[in-house]
C-alpha cells in the first residue's frame, strides 16, 4: 500500500501503520534517505542539512579519533548511539536531542524543494534517534517551520539561495557584549558565498536555526543578502572565448534586480574590491 501514497508524509504515515523498518530513498534536489525503525523516523540523510554525525563532529562535541574508535568497535551504526553513551563520549539525553533535532532539520530541508519519486529498501545502518520521531509530528513541525519562515521572510525556498554577506563596519560587531555567541559564529561564517545551508554545515548547526538567525541578523543590519550568482572579477591568466553574450553564470534566482549588466570581461580594479562592498544597495525589501 505504501508505495502508492500521494506524497512523502502520507507514505511515512502508511509505513508507520505497518511498523516498517528500512530506508526510503527520495529523489529530487536535494533528495535524501529516510531511515525508519518500527515506523518511526530515526534519521534522515540529505545533502540539504547536517546529520547528527556532522553536528557532533563539526562542532567538536565528539573528537575525530574517539569517533573512529567507536565506529571500529561498533560497526552497526544502529547500535552506535548506545556505544557512544557507554563509552562516556556523550550523555544519552544529549545524544537523543542532537539526533532528534537533526531529523526535524533534515525533514525541513527536504521540504524546501519539491520531492521526486521514492523507493523503499532494506534497513541501512544509521546513527538513529531512539526511539525515533512520529511521522505525523514531523509533518506538523515541518509545516509550522515553513509557515513561520514565510511570515518572517517570504518563500522559504528562496531563502535557501541567498548568500548573506556581512554589512561593512556593522556597529555591534566590535562591541559584541550583547550579540549572542551563536550570532557571532554565524556572522563569522557569512562571506557572500555561502548559502544558509553552507553555513549550517560549516558550523555543524541546524539549517532552520541558521535561517532564523540570519533573518534576525538581517533585521539588525548585521548581514545583507548577496544575490549575485556570478563570480567576482578575479583576473584569469587563461584566455577567454570571444565575447558572445552575457558573462553571468546563472540567472539570479531571487526577485532582486540582477547584478549590473554583463558587459566586457571582468577588470581588475585598483585597490581591490571585495564582494561585500559591492552590493551595498541590494538589500532585500521583502518584509
Amino acid at each position: 500500500m505504501a508505495p502508492t501514497a500521494r506524497n512523502v508524509p502520507a507514505l511515512l504515515q502508511g509505513l508507520r501503520a505497518e511498523g516498517f523498518s528500512g530506508t526510503v530513498r527520495v529523489s529530487g534536489l536535494p533528495g535524501g534517505a529516510i531511515h525508519l525503525r518500527n515506523g518511526l523516523v530515526g534519521a534522515i540523510e540529505t545533502p540539504g542539512a547536517p546529520t547528527a554525525t556532522s553536528a557532533l563532529l563539526t562542532s567538536g562535541r565528539i573528537g575525530d579519533e574517539d569517533w573512529l574508535a567507536a565506529c571500529a568497535a561498533e560497526p552497526d551504526a544502529d547500535r552506535l548511539a548506545g556505544h557512544l553513551v557507554a563509552e562516556g563520549l556523550i550523555g544519552a539525553a544529549e545524544l537523543e536531542v542532537v539526533c532528534t533535532a537533526a531529523v526535524f532539520d533534515a525533514a525541513f530541508a527536504m521540504a524546501l524543494s519539491p520531492p521526486g519519486s521514492w523507493e523503499l529498501s532494506d534497513r541501512e545502518p544509521a546513527l538513529v534517534a531512539e526511539p525515533g520521531v512520529e511521522p505525523r509530528q514531523l509533518t506538523e513541525e515541518t509545516s509550522r517551520r515553513m509557515t513561520l519562515l514565510s511570515r518572517l521572510w517570504g518563500p522559504p525556498g528562496e531563502l535557501t539561495r541567498v548568500r548573506p554577506a556581512p554589512v561593512a563596519g556593522a556597529g555591534p560587531r566590535g562591541s559584541d557584549g550583547w550579540l549572542a555567541r551563536r550570532h557571532r559564529d554565524v556572522l563569522d561564517s557569512v562571506n557572500g558565498r555561502r548559502t544558509p545551508r553552507d553555513i549550517a554545515f560549516a558550523l555543524g548547526r541546524g539549517l532552520y536555526a541558521v535561517m532564523l538567525d540570519l533573518i534576525r541578523m538581517e533585521a539588525l543590519h548585521l548581514v545583507q543578502w548577496e544575490t549575485r550568482t556570478t563570480a567576482d572579477g578575479r583576473p584569469s591568466t587563461a584566455p577567454r572565448v570571444p565575447q558572445a553574450g552575457a558573462t553571468t553564470a546563472a540567472p539570479a534566482p531571487t526577485p532582486v534586480p540582477a547584478a549590473p549588466d554583463a558587459a566586457p570581461l571582468p577588470k581588475r580594479r585598483p585597490g581591490g574590491v571585495s564582494p561585500a562592498q559591492d552590493v551595498g544597495q541590494q538589500k532585500k525589501g521583502g518584509w
Binding site: 534536489l29 536535494p30 545533502p47 540539504g48 558565498r193 545551508r197 553552507d198 554545515f201 550568482t229 556570478t230 563570480a231 567576482d232 578575479r234 584569469s236 587563461a238 577567454r240 572565448v241 565575447q243 558572445a244 553574450g245 558573462t247 553571468t248 553564470a249 546563472a250 570581461l265 571582468p266
Partner: peptide
Amino acid sequence: PDSLTGILASLRERVMG
C-alpha cells in the same frame, strides 16, 4: 557560462555542498 571563473562558480551553484 563563458568565463573560467563563471564555469567554476556555476558548478558551485549546481551541486549542493
